[in-house]
């Protein structure tokens, strides 16, 4: 049986932990609201850009399809962008990403892979497995500004154009809504728009010219896509953290009430024992007096 002192100390610790967990929960709730807004608002913009690209690609002459960002080339090196969190306390968030990564690695066993990493979790994991980490970025999910996305997108495009990678996959969380997030593995480079078969012979004019539109459009699409990925991942991370903290909070409260009960029991037995001592000694004293 633990002593009263020990139990008191324990109860106090649990109380403190509950406070911390509770404030973390509220904090991620606030964060998630802002991030969710941003992530869901960007979606129509991204979709619109893709729609334009799709409609455009079926109408342009074939020679423009040789643009390096669109054209498929023989694949020697594969780049993989893995998005995880910097901080822990977010439930199975990182584990699910790693799970998807493992599956991906099993499928691509023979190929020459190089990794781009966001977040310290994936970096630790990949360096343990002795895989080739090309670049690692931190604190991207904390500060989700567009400038970060632009830096990352430019570096990825540069590497792709320099033929350091021949294709680029992304493994990240897709934020659908506050209770639903899914891991997505998809290829973003080279961009192969769908429905290349049904080419249309429709008259279209391009201002100022086709080549001067295509280049910024493709760059814009990748930048926005990366930004969307970062926003989605950040929002999902907060959602996971919120759920993890909520569960932890509930558990902590359970433990707290259990301990409190135990504490009261111990205290009560001590009081009873003392009372017994007093009454018995009183009785003996009375006997002696008689």
């Amino acid at each position: 049986m633990p002593t009263l002192q020990q139990l008191r100390r324990k109860v106090k610790t649990i109380q403190n932990i509950t406070h911390i967990i509770h404030s973390m929960e509220t904090l991620s709730m606030v964060k998630i609201r802002a991030l969710q807004d941003k992530a869901l608002r960007l979606k129509p913009y991204t979709e619109e850009l893709f729609r334009i690209l799709e409609e455009m690609v079926v109408r342009i002459p074939d020679e423009y399809l040789n643009h390096p960002l669109i054209k498929e080339r023989p694949i020697f090196k594969t780049g993989v962008l893995v998005v995880t969190s910097d901080l822990g306390f977010c439930g199975s968030y990182n584990l699910q990403i790693i799970d998807a990564l493992e599956k991906f690695l099993n499928n691509k066993k023979s190929q020459n892979l190089s990794f781009y990493v966001i977040g310290s979790y994936a970096k630790r994991y990949l360096s343990q497995k002795k895989l080739n980490i090309k670049k690692a970025y931190f604190k991207f999910l904390e500060d989700t500004s567009f400038s970060h996305a632009r830096i990352l997108a430019r570096e990825l495009i540069d590497d792709f154009l320099k033929e350091e990678i021949d294709e680029l996959y992304v493994i990240h969380f897709d934020f659908i809504n506050i209770v639903r997030q899914e891991v997505r593995v998809h290829r973003i480079l080279p961009m192969i728009p769908i429905n290349l078969e049904n080419k249309k012979e429709e008259f279209f004019i391009f201002l100022p010219s086709l080549s001067s539109i295509l280049d910024p459009l493709l760059n814009d699409i990748i930048e926005t896509q990366i930004h969307q990925i970062i926003l989605d991942s950040a929002a999902s991370e907060q959602a996971f953290r919120r759920f993890a903290m909520k569960r932890a909070h509930e558990n902590a409260e359970k433990v707290y009430s259990k301990l409190l009960f135990q504490l009261n029991q111990v205290r009560q037995t001590q009081i009873t024992r003392e009372l017994l001592d007093i009454t018995s000694s009183m009785e003996t004293l009375e006997k002696e007096v008689k």
Binding site: I52, E202, F203, F204, I205, F206, L207, P208, S212, I213
Partner: peptide, 14 residues
């Protein structure tokens, strides 16, 4: 500047 009225030819512009 360009002006666009209904039934303008299909255009893609920067």
């Amino acid at each position: 500047m360009i002006g666009i009225l209904p039934r303008h030819v299909n255009t893609l512009a920067r």
